[in-house]
Amino acid sequence: MKIDFRPIILAGGSGTRFWPRSRKARAKQVLALDGERTMIQRTVDRLAPLASPEDVWVITNDLLSGTICGQLDVVPDEHVVCEPAARNTAPAVGLAAFLIEKLNPEAVIGIFPADHVIGNQPEFIRVIEQAVNLAAAGENMVVLGVTPTRPETGYGYIETGEKIGEGVARVRRFTEKPNQERAEEFLAAGNYHWNSGIFIWSARTIANAIREHLPETAPLLEKIANAYGTPEFREVFAALYPQCENISVDYAVLEPRSAKGESRSSLYCLPANFGWNDLGSWAALFEHSHEIKANLDEHGNVTEASGSLAIEAHDNYVYTPQKFVALVGVKDLVVVETEDAVLITSRHHSQDVGKVVKELAAQGRKDLI
Rank of each mutant, 00 (worst) to 15 (best):
Asn61Trp: 04
Ser52Lys: 11
Val74Gly: 02
Arg26Glu: 11
Pro84Asp: 10
Leu103Lys: 12
Glu36Gly: 15
Ile111Thr: 01
Ile40Lys: 01
Leu95Arg: 04
Phe98Pro: 12
Leu103Phe: 04
Leu72Asp: 03
Val74Lys: 15
Ala96Asp: 01
Leu63Thr: 03
Arg42Glu: 05
Glu54Thr: 05
Pro76Asp: 14
His116Ser: 08
Ser65Thr: 08
Asp73Thr: 15
Phe112Ser: 00
Pro105Trp: 05
Val80Gly: 05
His116Glu: 06
Glu83Asp: 07
Ala51Asp: 06
Glu83Gly: 09
Thr43Glu: 13
Leu95Trp: 02
Pro53Arg: 08
Ser65Leu: 13
Val108Asp: 00
Cys82Glu: 13
Ser65Val: 14
Glu54Val: 03
Thr89Tyr: 11
Arg42Ala: 11
Leu103Glu: 15
Leu64His: 10
Asn61Gly: 04
Ala97Glu: 07
Leu50Gln: 00
Gln29Lys: 02
Val75Leu: 13
Val93Tyr: 10
Glu106Ile: 05
Lys102Gly: 00
Thr67Cys: 03
Pro84Arg: 07
Ile40Leu: 01
Ala90Gly: 11
Asp45Gly: 01
Ala48His: 02
Phe112Lys: 02
Val74Cys: 14
Gly110Thr: 10
Ile40Met: 03
Ala90Pro: 02
Thr43Leu: 05
Ile111Gln: 09
Arg46Asp: 02
Val56Trp: 07
Gln71Asn: 01
His116Cys: 08
Leu95Met: 12
Gly66His: 12
